[in-house]
Computed example of a mutant assay.
Amino acid sequence: MLKRISALILAGVTALTMAGCSGGGDGDSSASGGSAGGGDDKIVMGFSQVGAESGWRTANTKSVQESAKEAGIDLKFSDAQQKQENQIKAIRSYIQQKVDVIAFSPVVESGWDTVLKEAQNAKIPVILTDRAVDSKDTSLYKTFLGSDFVEEGKKAGQWLVDEYKDSKDTVNIVELQGTTGSAPANDRKAGFSEIISADPKFKVIASQSGDFTRAKGKEVMEAFLKSNPKIDVLYAHNDDMGLGAIEAIEGAGKVPGKDIKIITVDAVHDGMQALADGKINYIVECSPLLGPQLMDLAKKVVKGEQVPPRVVTEETTFTQEQAKEALPNRKY
């Protein structure tokens, strides 16, 4: 009897030891964060995406998800559907789950201090991707990875200035802005305005948000066309709004790219095709493929390594001929 009891005790101790080495199973590891899983060093990232409002955003999501898988990072993904309250809720959920790192692309710039302070108090590092926040306390996040939106606006403005350098006539411009209060909308507008304001012949006669969506871009452009009989140029803060606007322009019996010159930002496949077809005149690139860089930064901040406070992605611009060359190998 004693031998049988001893054998049972030994078997129990062995089972407990094996359970400890396994990290308590996949479910426990995900819930408590990789380092809290008992031997499983897999990083757990909570990622809150803006939404799926454009082709750019879809490509960005795919890049993040595929890169996390390749990097061996356990990704907890949420779609905020372009609502700040949904992102704040998601971030608080990640804090409760004790993830190792939080990354998100802010819907708007302001109103983040409280929830980011909660993450800081929980000792969970935060990485901003694609969009910035306007908090004065830069200790609330480790780094910001993304494009220079002001520079994108400047590139768009410079093309326009060069295009009309020999003209003395007034150039009437309508602007389709991105989501109100968002970093790309604010900055792309500011950069564009800075460049064209040096010449009084450039006049922005109407400017309104199209929420970065194709449907809204079409709707707002239809209104622009009805209230403004002479439009020379459309500046759209992203390709999707520009593509929606093209539908409205054609519906009004005008020729996009000729009757109304069009400048957009992003360089997603549909936008590049429209550029190659001559319906868009110029595109400033904003790459959505941030996933690989994000995963590298995540690994470093989790280890406590120093990272640059700002990581700018390298991007270019496209004319019609350049779009034709680039399209066959375009990844998004």
Rank of each mutant, 00 (worst) to 15 (best):
T114G: 06
K258N: 09
L290I: 14
K299C: 15
L75V: 00
W56C: 06
P184S: 01
E109K: 14
K203V: 02
T319I: 05
K254R: 13
E109R: 12
K226H: 03
A252D: 14
A215G: 10
I196V: 11
V161P: 04
N121C: 01
E163A: 15
I195Y: 06
V50Y: 10
D199N: 10
H269I: 15
F47D: 11
A236W: 03
S22E: 08
F47K: 05
K279Y: 14
E194D: 11
E314A: 02
L8Q: 15
V108H: 09
E152M: 14
I280Q: 15
L2Q: 13
L116T: 03
D211G: 07
R330T: 05
Q81N: 08
L75K: 05
R188T: 00
W56E: 08
N172E: 01
K76W: 04
F77R: 04
S197D: 02
V13P: 09
A198R: 09
K89P: 01
F149T: 01
G251F: 07
V99G: 05
D266K: 01
V301I: 15
S287N: 10
E285W: 05
S67E: 11
I5P: 10
A185F: 09
P256L: 07
D266L: 00
K42H: 05
G271T: 05
A132P: 02
T61G: 03
P288N: 03
M18V: 15
S29N: 03
L145S: 09
K168L: 09
C286Y: 03
L289Q: 04
G153C: 14
G12H: 08
H269Q: 13
N172M: 00
G39D: 09
D130W: 12
G217T: 09
I88E: 13
K3D: 09
R131F: 05
A326P: 01
F144E: 06
K123M: 04
I262D: 14
A185D: 03
I9H: 11
K331L: 08
I102N: 07
L8Y: 13
V301M: 11
S22L: 11
A80L: 06
A59M: 06
T316W: 06
S110P: 12
D296Q: 15
T61W: 06
A198C: 04
G34E: 10
K203A: 00
A103Q: 06
D148P: 08
G33F: 08
E118M: 03
I173D: 01
A274P: 07
T138H: 08
N121S: 14
G191Y: 14
K324C: 09
G34P: 03
S287Y: 09
V101Y: 15
G24W: 11
Q96A: 13
E314H: 01
I263A: 00
T58S: 06
G23Q: 03
G157F: 14
I124H: 08
P184C: 00
K117A: 13
G242T: 01
I205R: 07
Q81S: 04
A274I: 03
E305A: 00
Q49F: 08
I263E: 00
V50E: 12
M221C: 10
Y332Q: 04
S139C: 09
I280S: 11
A190D: 11
G210A: 10
N121A: 12
G72L: 02
T316S: 14
T143C: 07
F202T: 01
L128G: 04
T58M: 07
S6G: 13
C21M: 11
M272G: 14
A276Y: 02
G178D: 13
I246R: 02
K216E: 05
E175I: 01
D137N: 14
K218W: 04
D134P: 07
A236Y: 08
